[in-house]
C-alpha cells in the first residue's frame, strides 16, 4: 500500500514541477521558444480532442476543422467587427459550436463507420464553400484579427498552456468517469456494449459535443496566434491531417500520445524549413517510418517496452501494485 501511495505522489509532484517550469517559460525563454510553446500546447489540445473521438470512442472524424474554423471566425467577428473582448469571443465560440455540433449530429450519427468519417469531411467542405460565398464573413477575403497584434505573446502563451493542460485534464477526467468506461467498451465492441446497457447514441453525442466545443475554444486561441483568417485556411483539411499525425504517431488511445505527437510534429516541422519543396515528403516518410517501426505510436512502443504509463486510465485497487516489491 505504501509503495503505491509513494508512486502516485512522486508522479504527481513531477508533473506539477514540470507545469510550473513551463508556466514561467516567458520569463526565461526566447521569443522563439515561446512561439513554439504556443503551437505545441494548442496542438496538444487538438490532438487530445481528436483522440477522445477517434482513439477512445471509435468515431473517426475528418471534420474537426469545422470547429477550429468556428472558433477562429468567432474570434475574428467578435473582436474585429463587433469590437468585443476576447473573453466574449470564447463564450460565443463555445455557444455556437455547441449548437452546431448538435445540429450536425442528427444526420451524421445516422451514418456508421466509414460513412460517418466521410460525412464529417463533407460537412466541413460544405461549410468552407458556404463561408467563401457568405457576405457576413467577408466572403473569401477573411479578416485580419488586429487586436491580436497588441496582445503580449506571454499572454497568448499562457492561454495556450491553460488550454493544452486543460485538454489533458479533461480527457483524463472523462476517461476515469463512468462515461469513460462506456466509451472504451464502445470502442472495443459496440454490439456487446449496447447489450451491456450502454446508451450508444447518447454517449457518442456527449463525446462529440465535448470534443467539438473544446476544439472550437482551441480554435479561438489558434487564430489569435495567427491573427489572420480565411475560409480556406480555417476549414482546411490540413487541420485534420495535423491531428491525425499527432495522435497516430504519438499513440492512439493513450493520453500521453498526443502530447508526444504534438511535440514531435511541431519540432519536426521547424527543422523542415531547411528543406523547402520536399518538406512534405520528409514529413510523410517520417510518419510511415514510425508507423512501421512502432505501430502503436511512440507511446505505444514505450508502454510495451518499459511498461510506463504516465496517465493511466486503468482501474486498479490500491493494493495491487505493478512493481515487484
Amino acid at each position: 500500500m505504501q509503495g503505491v501511495r509513494k508512486n502516485n505522489y512522486t508522479k504527481s509532484l513531477a508533473i506539477l514541477v514540470i507545469v510550473i517550469v513551463l508556466f514561467f517559460l516567458p520569463q526565461y525563454g526566447s521569443d522563439y521558444a515561446i512561439s513554439i510553446g504556443v503551437l505545441i500546447f494548442l496542438y496538444i489540445s487538438l490532438g487530445q480532442m481528436w483522440n477522445l473521438l477517434g482513439g477512445y470512442s471509435g468515431l473517426v472524424s475528418l471534420g474537426q476543422q469545422i470547429f477550429v474554423g468556428i472558433g477562429g471566425y468567432t474570434a475574428a467577428l467578435v473582436t474585429e467587427v463587433w469590437h468585443q473582448s476576447i473573453a466574449v469571443s470564447l463564450v460565443v465560440a463555445a455557444g455556437v459550436s455547441l449548437v452546431f455540433a448538435f445540429i450536425i449530429s442528427f444526420p451524421i450519427f445516422k451514418m456508421r463507420g466509414v460513412y460517418f468519417t466521410i460525412g464529417t469531411w463533407i460537412v466541413s467542405e460544405a461549410l468552407l464553400v458556404f463561408f467563401r460565398n457568405w457576405k457576413f464573413v467577408n466572403y473569401d477575403a477573411g479578416y485580419n484579427i488586429t487586436i491580436a497584434y497588441r496582445i503580449p505573446m506571454s499572454q497568448i502563451y499562457h492561454g495556450a498552456l491553460v488550454i493544452g493542460i486543460g485538454s489533458v485534464v479533461l480527457v483524463y477526467l472523462i476517461l476515469r468517469s463512468r462515461m469513460g468506461l462506456a466509451l472504451m467498451s464502445m470502442r472495443d465492441n459496440e454490439g456487446a456494449a449496447e447489450v451491456r446497457g450502454v446508451r450508444l447514441y447518447r454517449t457518442k453525442l456527449y463525446c462529440f459535443v465535448i470534443s467539438s466545443v473544446y476544439t472550437a475554444i482551441t480554435g479561438v486561441v489558434l487564430y489569435l496566434n495567427i491573427a489572420y483568417i480565411k475560409p480556406g485556411a480555417a476549414f482546411g483539411i490540413d487541420w485534420t491531417v495535423c491531428m491525425v499525425f499527432i495522435v497516430v504517431i504519438g499513440g492512439l488511445g493513450t493520453i500521453e500520445g498526443p502530447i508526444i505527437g504534438a511535440v514531435v510534429y511541431v519540432i519536426l516541422r521547424q527543422y523542415l524549413y531547411s528543406f523547402p519543396g520536399i518538406s512534405m515528403v520528409i514529413l510523410g516518410a517520417v510518419a510511415v517510418a514510425i508507423i512501421l517501426l512502432m505501430p502503436k505510436g511512440i507511446m505505444g512502443a514505450i508502454h510495451k517496452k518499459f511498461g510506463v504509463e504516465v496517465f493511466s486510465v486503468r482501474r486498479r485497487i490500491d493494493e495491487r501494485l505493478e512493481d515487484g516489491s
Partner: peptide, 30 residues
Amino acid sequence: RTFQVPRSFEGMSVYENVMIGGVCGRQMTE
C-alpha cells in the same frame, strides 16, 4: 445474456469488463 462466441472488451481489463455491466447496465456509481 452471454454470447456464444464471447464478446468481451478486449482492450479493457477483466475488472473493467465486469464493471461495465454494473455501471452501464444498472447505472451504479463506480
